[in-house]
C-alpha cells in the first residue's frame, strides 16, 4: 500500500507509543503494527525521521550500544501536539472518504 504523505503521522504515532527508540525499532514497529500492509522501502524512513527532526517534532542522539552505536529518536512536546493534530486530520479524511465511497456504492447498487 502506498503511504506517501502519511508516513509522518505513522512515525509520530510509533514514537509516541514506543518512547525513545532507534530507527530499526521504529521500522520493525511499523511493520508489525500494520501487519505487513505497509510495504515501504525501509531506507526511506531515515530521511523522513531527519525531516521530522528538522521540523522540531523529534529529537535524536547517538546511543553507544553493544555491539554498535545507534541513533535514538524521541518525540518532542511539539511532536506530540503535531501527532494529535495529524491524527485528527486523518480521521476526518477517513470519515469523508468513507462517506463518499458509501454514497457511491449505494448509487451503484441502485
Amino acid at each position: 500500500m502506498d503511504i506517501r504523505g502519511h508516513l509522518d503521522l505513522l512515525l509520530l504515532a510509533v514514537l509516541a507509543d514506543a518512547g525513545p527508540v532507534h530507527g530499526y525499532a521504529v521500522i520493525a514497529a511499523l511493520r508489525e503494527r500494520s501487519q505487513g500492509v505497509f510495504d515501504i522501502p525501509e531506507g526511506t524512513v531515515y530521511p523522513a525521521l531527519h525531516k521530522l527532526e528538522r521540523a522540531g517534532l523529534v529529537v535524536s542522539r547517538w546511543e553507544q550500544a553493544t555491539p554498535r552505536r545507534r541513533r535514538v529518536y524521541e518525540l518532542t512536546p511539539d511532536g506530540r501536539v503535531a501527532r494529535t493534530a495529524k491524527q485528527r486530520e486523518w480521521r476526518g479524511l477517513v470519515r469523508g472518504v468513507q462517506a463518499v465511497i458509501g454514497s457511491a456504492t449505494l448509487q451503484g447498487m441502485a
Binding site: 530507527g23 530499526y24 525501509e42 531506507g43 531515515y46 531527519h50 554498535r68
Partner: peptide
Amino acid sequence: AAGRRLLSETESHLLDA
C-alpha cells in the same frame, strides 16, 4: 553531515537486519 548520518544509520540498520 546529513549524508554521513544517513550512511551510519544505514550501516547499523543493515547489520541489524
